[in-house]
Amino acid sequence: MARALRSMLWRAVAYAVVLELMLIPAILYFPEFEKHTRQLRAMAPLPVLRDIVDTLEEGGVFAYVTGQHFFKGCNTLGTAAAVLLAAGAVAGEVHRGTFEIWLARPVSRVRLLTERWIQGALAVTLPVVATTLSIPWLLTKVGYALPYSPLLLSAVQQCAMLLAIYSTTFFLSTLARAPMGIAFAMLVFTIFQFAVYLVERMTHWSLFRLTDVERFLDIQRTGGFDWRALGPLVFVTLAMYVASLVSFARRTP
């Protein structure tokens, strides 16, 4: 367990550092953004992007920050991290030939898989929460203030999205023999979903509607979650975890 934990810890730290490095300049740029919103809107090549700029203008600093950190940073980098961390969970052991020794110890399969799932889930979500906690402090550097509560609720919504992607990839990993194929397939799928988001007539079919700026503004307005958006993500996460247990129980070296 220590080996896997150590490996996950390093990846989580690297992922958190990159997220923070993306967040810092984005927040420091906010005063400039606010000044030049109209010019940016005029430059936007797609109607959907113009809508995003409009939403950011109307939503103010909260919309801008959640757009930068969650919609842009976590939906791209976080999704990649979730896919890459989950793809090797079981398929990685099979691929490197260590699957048999991993199972041969007196530890139940349910425990082995659950430990691995939790380690990865923490590595995917904790950096999101940790970097979110730095936002109010960073905003003070440019003369703005935001409370923690709506940001943390938004972070939970974002984590639910990442966990759904992570768990789906994790399930595929319990079926496959090589992690690269799964990672490639899932990354193509998520990039496709992002592309769909940018197409005006199809945008409502994109999964990333569940973690876009409008969704976070709803959370800020209501002070709570919309379970029509959070519920399916939680359900997919749990269903994929249970499916992983069933699949893993049948897996042979």
Partner: peptide
């Protein structure tokens, strides 16, 4: 999944694939 049996016996697999990043003691 045979955990009760694995607690009462040891097994050395025929296939050799180890975690190269660990040292022998680890």
């Amino acid at each position: 999944d045979g955990t009760a049996i694995r607690e009462r016996c040891t097994y050395a697999p025929g296939e050799i694939a180890l975690y190269g990043e660990l040292d022998g003691a680890e």
